[in-house]
Design a binder for these strands. Sequence first.
DNA 1: CATGAATGAGTATTCATTCAT
DNA 2: AATGAATGAATACTCATTCAT
Lengths: 205, 205, 205, 205
Amino acid sequence: MRVNEQTKAETRQALLDAAAQAFARHGYHQTPIDSVSEAAGVAKGTIYNYFSSKEEVLHALIHDACQLAVDAAETTPGSASTHARLEAFVQANLNWARKRTPLALLFARELLGGDTRTQALIREAAAPCVEKVAAILQAGIERREIEVDAPPEALAFTFLKLTNMLLLQSWESPTSWPRLRDLPATAVSLFLHGVARAGPSRNEP
Amino acid sequence: MRVNEQTKAETRQALLDAAAQAFARHGYHQTPIDSVSEAAGVAKGTIYNYFSSKEEVLHALIHDACQLAVDAAETTPGSASTHARLEAFVQANLNWARKRTPLALLFARELLGGDTRTQALIREAAAPCVEKVAAILQAGIERREIEVDAPPEALAFTFLKLTNMLLLQSWESPTSWPRLRDLPATAVSLFLHGVARAGPSRNEP
Amino acid sequence: MRVNEQTKAETRQALLDAAAQAFARHGYHQTPIDSVSEAAGVAKGTIYNYFSSKEEVLHALIHDACQLAVDAAETTPGSASTHARLEAFVQANLNWARKRTPLALLFARELLGGDTRTQALIREAAAPCVEKVAAILQAGIERREIEVDAPPEALAFTFLKLTNMLLLQSWESPTSWPRLRDLPATAVSLFLHGVARAGPSRNEP
Amino acid sequence: MRVNEQTKAETRQALLDAAAQAFARHGYHQTPIDSVSEAAGVAKGTIYNYFSSKEEVLHALIHDACQLAVDAAETTPGSASTHARLEAFVQANLNWARKRTPLALLFARELLGGDTRTQALIREAAAPCVEKVAAILQAGIERREIEVDAPPEALAFTFLKLTNMLLLQSWESPTSWPRLRDLPATAVSLFLHGVARAGPSRNEP
DNA sequence: CATGAATGAGTATTCATTCAT
DNA sequence: AATGAATGAATACTCATTCAT
């Protein structure tokens, strides 16, 4: 039945939302699965009709977050300066983070401090996104705007971690640097140019 | 079983080492405390002769790590360029991280992804270290080498997170950027100047 | 496993019965809670579906016992001699004690030798019962049948302790005085008139 | 050596005193044995040089208390009224209870609410005391002052429990009836004559 | 499909007792 | 004889998962 399909999808999404909120706030391992079903307004056992285990819920969330990050990567303009393209990417990520805050914070937490299993999952699910960023950086390298002797993918992954670290920090502590609203510009500026005034100080020992 | 002070100190250290290793590898909450005692070669209950709770073990470790970081901060030269001083700080941290790897990785993990309680603990125990870095940055700001409109402490904390993120990453994935051996130079270079080639690209849109 | 209310109530009661038996026999602190679940024929964890802690099980039992005592107090006739009313009260208590022996013995034990917490709980839960007995004694005082210079509540509480002491003793040691079947008459007689033959011996030095 | 013998005896007594205090206050099972040795000013293990187990400490205390009760029984006059002799016995017990309060309270608690093992121990150790009281009561029975159809030992044991119940109660709750200072007179008066005014009410139904 | 009672392995912690020093 | 570190069995409680209703 059409309506039932829809209801099912809604229940699944309610569970994911509740889980994202709880996992982001208290951490995955500190969250009893009952509290997730309760917050989603269903019974304890129901969650197992949608996910085969607690871990699978986490993985589904990670997957969703990665997909949003991939989508964000794909909306970045194909032909602008490296700075502009990176900033557009961060901005797009910030956009969905504003709408899906718990999901974004959970993703950032797991990206930075998740266990090996989860990290591997992220690496796989976020690969297209990393590829896209890598392509932007590769273009920058070719244009001699960026001068780092490293595979663009490694660079891109570090960039992703950096932006998520800044996102997590600025969300949790409003007095931190950078502020949330400055995140896209500042993160990219930091990554490309650092905090130092441009000029002669560059190649100091 | 009156035992001399040295033996006691050794047992305590063995417990801390085992805990650091286990917490760093599997995460604090995923580590049964019995496994720590076992890894340290003592019986289950013995750990409670040294620490009043599992959490206190974590706190002792955090404290040790913060102390090492503070020590590292205090060895940095007082009168060199911002770049040199920061690099010396990162290098000193890398030095103890090489000797106390599990402790360093645990610290990095908790700094980036620990729960609220632990983060607060770190903020407090690492305050002198943050202050020292803040002083270095403040000097850079006054000398107009650094141009960021933010409290030096906020900047310093972000710097600390950045270096620990890079440390954690380069330790766990040897193909990442930057490589571990390049960490001090690269981390500071990234923070101060970014990855972009110096010059006209700076104030791009 | 949606189960009907009756089954739930039965399980709950089975747990309470098993707990009463075990607590009465071995004492609250000496009884492992797992043994209660086991005796009730359910798994270890099941008891926590019904009570939030071991202490709450004890409290529920105390509460039940107090309620039975209160019910007993309320069935006592309103207009008979002090002796008859007290005896009716003790008899009513003995009646439920015969049906719920472990509960009655547990109550007696906790009333006489429970820790401070439990004693306080009993005082609160048994208050209506004490009030009722106090009212009976107060009437006796007003009618000049009883001559004791003390608040009726204090008198009533001592009476309650006395009867429970005798109950516990006569249950545990069948050769004791008084015998269980004589309890109502003897306890009240002891309380009101003592064991001495009435007459001139009363105000002896 | 003489002094060593004395020191040993002092240590033993210090341990017993500390144990009596702790057991009386928190209950035997709720008292960690460390807290006893600590309160006695010796190390944890030392207690095992004096007693083979925690239970033996309790038994030694029970034994001491019983001995004091026996001593009290033996000081009672051999030829006075039943009332006077019983009162002298209770008074003598109250006398040592004032000097050794924790011991007395512990004894009362164990007498009323101790486990089977301890009760049996008390019955054995207090037998001479019970015998003495039984003899007093037997004399009363023979003189037709007391009219109860029961073995004097059973009567005596109930009398002992009654007085200890009243002692415990009046010590712990100063507003209870009877007051501590009235205990000897009131306890005996209650036991022999009850709280009712002497006279026609005696053989009421 | 949804429910929520039942399950039982897992976990942190306590504590009586031992024994090397 | 005194010490107190080490021991490990015991214990209250949690929680992911199952499955009868």
